[in-house]
Write a protein that binds this DNA or RNA. Sequence first.
DNA 1: TTACATTAGTTGACACCGTCAACCAATACT
DNA 2: AGTATTGGTTGACGGTGTCAACTAATGTAA
Lengths: 150, 150
Amino acid sequence: MKNSFSDIYSLLQELAWHFGDHGINGECCEDLSLVEFMALKAAYENDNFTIQDIGSSINFTKSGATRIIDRLETKGYVKRERSLSDGRVCCVPVTDKGAQVISQIIKKNTNYVEELLQDLEPQAIDNIKIAMEILIKAMKRQDIIKSKSL
Amino acid sequence: MKNSFSDIYSLLQELAWHFGDHGINGECCEDLSLVEFMALKAAYENDNFTIQDIGSSINFTKSGATRIIDRLETKGYVKRERSLSDGRVCCVPVTDKGAQVISQIIKKNTNYVEELLQDLEPQAIDNIKIAMEILIKAMKRQDIIKSKSL
DNA sequence: TTACATTAGTTGACACCGTCAACCAATACT
DNA sequence: AGTATTGGTTGACGGTGTCAACTAATGTAA
């Protein structure tokens, strides 16, 4: 049983490496690094996300977040808009071009996953999905526990 | 069904992020970055691995590999040894200290996974393991196909 | 044996990237 | 009004991987 955990860890490690910075997602798409993609996705999925929100959602300092938004802005994927209710905060709406690039990346990677798994039984595919959902749920719960204990 | 693939992709993305450079493994252990850990692990698991072997196993150029080995060497985790049969190649044996740090990291992360999953039924844990093995097997097969088609 | 080609590894210059600390401007507190 | 706080930006910096040029060892062929 103990051994199962270490197997799972090493499998996770391998998966993470493959889908991380240095694997298929290193190039990600056109002109986005993985970090930039994650930031863009965060902005895309959360209306009125501020720069610091984006930073903390990807574990960066606020100056790091500023720099990433700089890059995304010069690439035309987001805009900076001062909040009307509070002149300090910057909201970062995603432009049409940004939304387009996001969905393009997601589509491409979804296709990749489909290629990977196409030969499996529907049942097996579902099992994979369920297994990963359980894992991620456990991960998130753990995060909450850790953040409380600080 | 199509939708399952996109779900799985996004779950994979999340997992990879969590276990990647910026998540729990960003700090990895003591004084190793994730990249360094992967290189050290590659050297550890393969006897007589050369510097370029290590580089290609983590998708780096040979000069990148040299730099990583530099760091691992100054930290005392590997040694450089010219091959006796070919004076050009460097083998990179892992020192005792290196082996120790590797097993320490693996242990720590195994514990983390155990913490995550301890409340699950043994059956569920096994399912997770099986699901991930299938995924990785598919991944590797795909890699081979891709490398052949180049 | 000499001359040329190839291969493993190293190094200097460089560009990219995220952090830190100092800073500015807007808002909140009293 | 005056001070403290907060969101965001910027300059300086250190860390890191690449590229191209290099050295040294090996292979090849006359």
